[in-house]
């Protein structure tokens, strides 16, 4: 497992056993671990091995797929001195939905985690600034979840209408559109419907 990844080779034996899988594709290695071991591994990479550049933090949603957990958090790490890049994938359980933050190891994690929180609703424990990021602060959904449709749930139509009428500006109620806010999510029918919606146009 992970024959040619220097980051894995340099791990102490007890941490090596925490890495449950190693995938290589086109010369790039991805290590996999569980939520409980994420912090220890990342501390080792940062403090002992000098992976001083956190390139990116992001997540993947495996809703309805046959995977170990629903979420996968992805850290892209780089050692600038050794010029080596690899990824650490961390499984995250849907019901727990929280993972320790690493903002104290890399400052770039502050915004990377904040964006992942905004898009997936994943809570990074300890991150001091976990507000909404790209979406309005009271947006009713986490858009990159697989059960959220591409076109949203008609949030984009719900604004008042400003109409020019003489000197005065008049606000009108928006046209009524069918809205699906508050619908029961996470049901099989719903997921099926989302899948159907999310196919490209035929």
């Amino acid at each position: 497992m992970a024959d040619n990844n220097p980051a894995y080779e340099a791990l102490p034996a007890d941490l090596k056993s925490k890495v449950i899988e190693s995938v290589e594709h086109q010369g790039q290695v991805a290590l996999r671990c569980r939520t409980a071991d994420q912090r220890a591994l990342l501390e080792n990479f940062r403090l002992s091995q000098g992976y001083d550049f956190l390139v990116d933090v992001t997540a993947m949603d495996h809703l309805g797929k046959d995977t170990e957990e629903r979420f996968e958090i992805i850290y892209v790490l780089r050692n600038l001195t050794a010029n080596h890049t690899f990824r650490l994938h961390v499984w995250l359980d849907e019901s727990d939905n929280a993972i320790p933050s690493v903002f104290d190891l890399w400052d770039s994690a502050r915004w990377g985690e904040r964006e992942t929180h905004d898009m997936f609703g994943i809570v990074f424990d300890g991150n001091p600034d976990l507000r909404r990021f790209l979406m309005p602060e009271d947006y009713p959904a986490f858009p990159l979840l697989k059960d959220y449709p591409l076109k949203g749930k008609e949030e984009r139509r719900q604004f008042p209408k400003v109409v020019a009428r003489g000197d005065r500006m008049v606000e009108e109620e928006p046209d009524t559109y069918p809205t699906s806010i508050g619908r029961q999510m996470h049901t099989p029918e719903y997921i099926e419907e989302v899948r159907r919606d999310s196919k490209p146009r035929e």
Binding site: K151, F159, P160, P174, D175
Partner: peptide, 15 residues
């Protein structure tokens, strides 16, 4: 961009 976040034409809300 027929996506969740984009207003599909500003003429829906301003003249």
């Amino acid at each position: 961009f027929d996506t969740y976040t984009l207003v599909q034409g500003v003429d829906q809300f301003i003249p």
